[in-house]
C-alpha cells in the first residue's frame, strides 16, 4: 500500500469503536478524504490532539488503490486553532465554512485555492476579525472557486452596468443582480447598494493574504448576507446547521 503525505484540515471526527476514529479531512493534494485512525482514542502519543475538528495538520496516510477508507498513519500539528473552541460563536463560523465545503466540493476533488481559503478563514476566525465579515468573504470567494459565481457587475437582464448611487436588486433564482427597471414584476429580490456590490467584488478578487484588512460597513454586512447567504442556501436547497446554530445563539444574547 503506498504512503502519501499532504496538508489537511480536520472537517469531521467521529468515534468509530472503543479505540478508533473515522476522520474526514479536506486536504491540499487529494481534496476531501475519509480515513480511519486506529487506536486514536487510546494512544496519546501517536495522534495527540491532531485529529480534532479544525486542526491544521500534516497528514501521512496509506491508501489502497480502490480509494476506500484511507488509513491514517501519522499526523503532526501545523496549527491547532485553539481559540475557536473557547468561543461557541467562533466555533459556529468555523463549522459554517466546513459545512459549505462539504456541500459544495465533491469527494476527492482537489482544489488548492479552496484549501488556502479554508486555512486562512479558520486562521482569521481564530484571531479577532469579526465573524460576519469572514463569513461574507468566505462565501463569495468559495462560490467563485467552485463555479457558482454570482453576477455582480451589471444587470443580468439588460446589461446595465454599476454606476454611482444606483440601487440594484439581487435575485437568488437568477444568481446575480438586476437593475431597478428590470426588477419590476420579479419576486424574491433583496436590495443591494453599489457600496455593498463594490466591497463584495473586492472580497472576491483581493489577494487572500491582504483580505484581513477588508472592512465591511454595517449596511454592507446586512445586504450581502441577505443576498449571498440566501443564494447559497438556495443552491444547497437547505439552511446549513451552523447557520441555524448562529441564529439561535444570537437570539439568546
Amino acid at each position: 500500500m503506498p504512503l502519501y503525505r499532504t496538508d489537511a484540515i480536520v472537517i469531521r471526527s467521529m468515534d468509530f469503536s472503543e479505540s478508533d476514529k473515522i476522520v474526514t479531512f479536506f486536504t491540499r493534494d487529494f481534496g476531501k478524504l475519509r480515513g480511519i485512525a486506529k487506536g486514536a482514542k487510546k494512544s496519546k502519543k501517536r495522534f495527540s490532539n491532531t485529529l480534532e475538528l479544525f486542526s491544521y495538520i500534516s497528514l501521512l496516510f496509506f491508501q489502497k488503490e480502490n480509494l476506500g477508507l484511507a488509513r491514517v498513519n501519522n499526523c503532526s500539528i501545523i496549527k491547532a486553532h485553539m481559540e475557536i473552541y473557547k468561543d461557541i460563536e467562533k466555533m459556529a463560523y468555523g463549522s459554517y465554512f466546513i459545512e459549505l465545503i462539504n456541500e459544495l466540493v465533491g469527494e476527492r476533488e482537489k482544489n488548492n485555492e479552496v484549501f488556502n481559503l479554508l486555512v486562512d478563514s479558520l486562521s482569521m476566525v481564530n484571531g479577532d476579525k469579526l465573524g460576519e465579515e469572514i463569513a461574507r468573504i468566505f462565501e463569495i470567494r468559495l462560490l467563485s472557486l467552485v463555479g457558482y459565481q454570482p453576477q455582480l457587475q451589471g444587470c443580468l437582464t439588460c446589461g446595465h452596468r454599476l454606476s454611482n448611487g444606483e440601487m440594484f436588486w439581487f435575485s437568488s433564482v437568477k444568481g446575480g443582480i438586476v437593475c431597478n427597471r428590470c426588477s419590476h414584476g420579479q419576486g424574491n429580490l433583496s436590495p443591494i447598494s453599489p457600496g455593498t456590490l463594490k466591497i463584495l467584488l473586492l472580497a472576491r478578487d483581493m489577494d487572500l493574504r491582504k483580505i484581513h484588512r477588508l472592512i465591511f460597513s454595517k449596511q454592507a454586512l446586512m445586504e450581502s448576507k441577505d443576498a449571498i447567504t440566501n443564494f447559497i442556501q438556495y443552491q444547497m436547497g437547505k439552511e446549513p446547521n451552523s447557520m441555524k446554530f448562529l441564529k439561535k445563539i444570537h437570539g439568546l444574547s
Binding site: E99, L246, K248, L252
Partner: peptide, 11 residues
Amino acid sequence: VLSPLDGISPQ
C-alpha cells in the same frame, strides 16, 4: 454537547 455542525445549540 454543543455542536454547530449538528445544529445542537444550547437550546
